[in-house]
Write a protein that binds this DNA or RNA. Structure first.
Lengths: 337, 337
DNA sequence: GTGAAAGCGCTAACAG
DNA sequence: CTGTTAGCGCTTTCAC
C-alpha cells in the first residue's frame, strides 16, 4: 500500500541508492538527467520518505522534546512558542509534554521521549527526580538536555537558560519599599523549588538592605496559581491589615492577590500595592494593570532551543545563560516621584 | 555506544526474539524465569527500546500531529491541552505545530508530520490548500485527520469536532438585542474563514428575526487579535456613535473592543454592551468581566483526539461532532430583568 | 554516475 | 518456551 524508496527505484529503473541520493539532496553522484527523472516520479506518485527509517540508520531524529508544567499557563505557552519557532527554523519538530509539576508524569514523559530517540530535551523541571533509579538511568543515557526557568539539584550537570531570580525578587521588593513603607509581604509559589526560593532571597536582601527586620509571618507559600494567590492573600491580610505592599511570586499569583483584595474592598494601589514577576500578556489587561518584573519569556524558550541545537551539533556553548529582567511599572503601584 | 536489543539478548544468553517478547509484555511465550532475568538486565544497564525501529516494522508510531495557529493564544493552548491529555492517556505523544494561519507554514508542517509518519493529525486549519499539488498529495496519503474549530472546502472529506457557530452568533446577538435597542454591530475576525462567516450568519439571523434591517456598515472584519478588535472599534464607533451593542467575533477581539471603548471614554456596559465568544480564562479577569458564549474548548480538543484515536484503530465513529455552547453573563452587559 | 550488499534496531512468522 | 530467519525502509560503503 504505502509507497517506499524501492517503488520509486523500480519505477525509475535505478537503484534505491540513487533515489536516496536524490531525496537527500546529495550534490554529487547523480546526473542531472536521472535526478530530474526521479524527482518527477516522486512528485507524480506523491512519495514521502519515511524519516523513522532514516533515523534508525543515521541515528538522529530531528525531533526535540519539550517538558513544561502546563501549556494553558500563558508563561509556558510563550516559552513553548519560543522553543517551537527556533526548532522549526532548524528543521526540528517538537514533542509537547505537560507534566503538571508531577514528578511521576515527568518521568513517564521523559521515558517516552527517550524511546522516541529525540535528539534533545528542553526541561522545565518539576523538581528533583523522586525515582532515583530513573535518575541513574536518565543520566547514563546522556542525552542533550537544556533546562529552562528552574534548576534542581539532581539536574546540576545540565546547563540552561534562566533569569536571575534573586535579582528579580530584589527589584520587585525594592520598588515596593520605595513607596515609603516597611510592611511588605511575599506571597510565593511552590515552597522549595528553585524559583520560589531565589525570589525569596531577593526579597530578603531588599528588606535587610533597607534596615528592616524580616517578619516571617509576612512570608507565605502556596503554588503558582490564581487560587493560591487568592487564598493566601485572604488569610494573610485578615491577620495583618498593616501590610502595605505585596510581592507576588508570579503574575498569575498577583492576579489572585488583586482579586482577593478587591473582595476585601481594599483599594489597589491606594491601600496596598502589588508587584508580580513574569509580565505575561494578561498583566496589562487586568484592572489595575500589573506592575511586574518582566522576563523575556519567548526569548528564554528560543535561546534554550538554540542552545540545545548547538549542543546536539557539538558546538561549544558552555555554561548557563541568564537573560535580563526589567521592572515594568503599571497601575498596581502608586506613582513614585 | 548505544545499547540495543542485541546487547540485552547476548547478556541474557537468549535470542533477541525473546527479549522483544519481554519488552512488549507478551503474556505467552516466555517463562517467568527468563522474563525476570531479562527484566533485571534491562533495568541494570538502563536499556531503552528504540521506538523508531519498532515503528518501521509495525507501521505505527504512537505519535499524533497537532496543527494550530498559535499556542500563545489561550484558546489554542486550552485546545492543545485537551488533545495532549487524551493522547497521553492512550500512549500517544504529540507534535506541536504553530501555523500562524499561514498556509505555507501549514504545508511545511503537514509534510514534516507525514515524513515522521504520525498515526494521525488534528488540524485547526488556516483555510483551503493554496498549493493544489500538495492538496492532491495529501489526499492520496490518506492519513487519519480530524478537524477542530474550523472547516474548509478542501477538507470536506475529513470529519471533526466543532461548535455550532451560527447558533453561537445567534445567541450572542439575541442577548444584546434583548437589551432593548437595535443598533448592534458585529466586529468579526478574519474574513472568509468558516467560523467568522458562520458567526455572521447567526448575527444576521438574530437581527432579521427581530425585524430589524441589517445595516452593512455595522459589520466589519479584521483578524482574531486584540489589535484588530481595538482598531476596528475605534473607526467603527467614530462613525457610528449610535451603536449600543457590539458582538465581538471572539473573546480576544472583545478585549480589544473594550480597550478601545475605554480609550474613547465610553462606558461598558452603560453606554455600549459587549459580548464575545469562547470564554477563555482571561474573560473573567478583565474589567468589566466579559459576557460571552462559552465554548467547551478543552473538551473539543479532548474529543477530537479521542475521535482521531478511534479513527486510527478503525473504530466506527462517523460524522462531525458539535459540542454545545452556553451564554455566560458577566459585567460587560447590563442586567436584564 | 550508479548499483550491490550490508546493516541500523526491532518484530513476526515459523520451526522446533 | 525459545531461536532462526526474513524483512521493515532507508543510508552507506565499496566496487564497477
Amino acid at each position: 500500500m504505502k509507497i517506499t524508496i524501492n517503488d520509486i527505484a523500480k519505477m525509475a529503473n535505478v537503484s534505491k541508492a540513487t533515489v536516496s541520493r536524490v531525496i537527500n539532496n546529495k550534490e554529487e553522484g547523480v546526473s542531472e538527467e536521472t535526478r530530474k527523472k526521479i524527482l518527477k516520479i516522486i512528485d507524480e506518485v506523491g512519495y514521502v520518505p519515511n524519516s523513522n527509517a532514516r533515523s534508525i540508520t543515521v541515528s538522529e531524529t530531528k525531533t526535540i522534546g519539550l517538558v513544561i508544567p502546563d501549556v494553558r499557563n500563558l508563561f509556558f505557552a510563550e516559552l513553548a512558542r519560543g522553543v517551537e519557532d527556533c526548532s522549526s527554523e532548524h528543521g526540528y519538530t517538537v514533542f509537547l509534554c505537560n507534566s503538571d509539576m508531577d514528578n511521576y508524569k515527568q518521568k513517564i514523559y521523559l521515558n517516552a521521549l527517550l524511546e522516541k530517540r529525540v535528539d534533545g530535551i528542553i526541561l522545565d523541571t518539576s523538581g528533583d527526580f523522586k525515582d532515583k533509579k530513573f535518575k541513574n538511568k536518565f543520566y547514563k543515557i546522556d542525552i542533550p538536555v537544556i533546562l529552562i526557568d528552574r534548576k534542581a539539584k539532581d539536574l546540576e550537570k545540565y546547563k540552561g537558560v534562566f533569569i536571575d531570580n534573586v535579582e528579580a525578587g530584589y527589584k520587585a521588593t525594592k520598588y515596593l519599599l520605595s513607596g515609603g513603607y516597611e510592611n511588605v509581604a511575599y506571597i510565593g509559589g511552590t515552597y522549595g523549588i528553585d524559583t520560589t526560593m531565589k525570589r525569596f532571597e531577593g526579597y530578603k536582601k531588599a528588606i535587610e538592605e533597607a534596615g528592616i527586620e524580616l517578619n516571617p509571618s509576612y512570608v507565605v507559600y502556596g503554588d503558582y496559581s490564581i487560587k493560591s494567590g487568592h487564598e493566601n492573600t485572604l488569610s494573610l491580610i485578615k491577620k495583618h491589615r498593616e501590610i502595605k505592599g505585596i510581592f507576588a511570586g508570579s503574575d498569575i499569583i498577583a492576579i489572585g492577590v488583586i482579586q482577593a483584595l478587591k473582595e476585601m474592598n481594599i483599594l489597589v494601589p491606594d491601600e496596598i500595592e502589588v508587584v508580580g514577576i513574569d509580565n505575561i500578556s494578561v498583566s496589562q489587561l487586568i484592572t489595575p494593570s500589573l506592575t511586574t518584573v518582566a522576563q523575556p519569556i519567548y526569548k528564554i524558550g528560543y535561546r534554550a532551543c538554540k542552545k540545545l541545537i548547538n549542543y546536539i551539533n557539538h558546538k561549544f556553548d558552555d555554561g548557563d545563560e541568564y537573560l535580563s529582567t526589567e521592572l515594568i511599572v503599571r497601575d498596581s503601584t502608586r506613582k513614585r516621584i
